[in-house]
Amino acid sequence: MIEFRKSSQRGSADFGWLQSRHSFSFGRYYDPAQMGFSALRVINDDRVSPGAGFDTHGHRDMEIISLVLDGVIAHRDSTGQVAELPAGEYQLMSAGRGIMHSEFNARTNQDLHFLQIWIEPDSLGGEPGYQQKPFAQTPGLTLVASKDGAEGSLRLKQNAKLFQLRLDAQSALNFQTQAGRKLYLHLVSGSLSGQSGEQHISLQPGDGVKIADLTDWQFSSGAEPVFALLFDLP
């Protein structure tokens, strides 16, 4: 099964200080056919004006990953965590039984561009937590988050894996997952194609694709380097 989610099909929100594109139903944007995929619930592509941001608000029972593409996030939460998240670093906030937090554009002269990702945990309640880490920008697959924290990845409360996929221009990479697993691919930049047997995909920035029952892939870049997020899901 392959189901495309083109960038132009995403939901949108415009609050003046915030411009957001939603790959799945979120906030005022509701589409019963786009309520997530497996444990993946949200991918929001957010752009925040200088100095603006999200006032203190609460979450529970959700694994929330942020990746800054440009700018810096100023983070504060009810566990006492105060941090800045610069471009290229990943943040994983486990809401557990409940957490309050705020996120602001830490710069007054630069827009903030980041991805916010929600993954449903495999158990409810528990202690909230916070993790933050940079990962190598080298070409290939880099494991960013996993259940057991393998390869120095962030520890995720779900039997899922998040990979960072980077390819140089005109290059290829093979990927294999276990039978019965699902994949979701979100392209951040570049032009990406993929092949599994006789099945083909082609993505442009902002596009996503749901994949099931196809375990072996070869991903290829075009004339520009590729940056994508690959989710291996239960």
Rank of each mutant, 00 (worst) to 15 (best):
S8P: 01
S12V: 07
F15P: 00
F15D: 10
F15Q: 15
G16F: 10
W17R: 11
W17A: 12
L18P: 00
Q19M: 12
R28G: 04
Y30F: 14
M35Y: 03
G36V: 11
F37H: 06
S38Y: 03
A39I: 07
N44Y: 02
R47T: 14
V48P: 13
S49E: 08
P50I: 02
G51N: 06
T56E: 13
T56R: 14
H57N: 04
H59T: 02
D61S: 02
E63Y: 08
I65N: 04
D70C: 10
A74Y: 04
H75N: 01
T79C: 11
A83R: 15
E84W: 12
E84N: 14
G88D: 02
E89G: 03
Q91T: 05
L92P: 02
M93R: 12
G96P: 12
G98L: 07
H101F: 10
A106F: 03
N109W: 07
D111Q: 14
L115G: 08
L115A: 06
Q116P: 03
W118G: 02
P121I: 09
D122C: 11
D122Q: 15
S123C: 04
G126V: 08
Q132N: 09
A136L: 12
P139G: 05
L143Y: 09
A145F: 07
A145H: 06
K147G: 01
K147S: 11
G149Y: 05
A150Q: 14
L154I: 10
A160C: 10
F163Q: 05
F163G: 04
R166N: 06
A169T: 04
S171T: 15
A172P: 07
N174K: 14
Q176T: 15
T177G: 01
T177F: 07
R181G: 00
L192Y: 05
L192N: 12
Q195K: 15
G197N: 05
E198I: 11
H200T: 13
I201C: 07
I201R: 05
S202R: 15
L203Q: 09
D207E: 12
V209Y: 10
V209L: 11
I211P: 02
I211V: 15
L214W: 08
Q218P: 01
S221Y: 13
P225R: 05
V226R: 09
F227M: 14
F227C: 10
A228T: 10
A228P: 11
L229I: 12
L229G: 09
L230E: 04
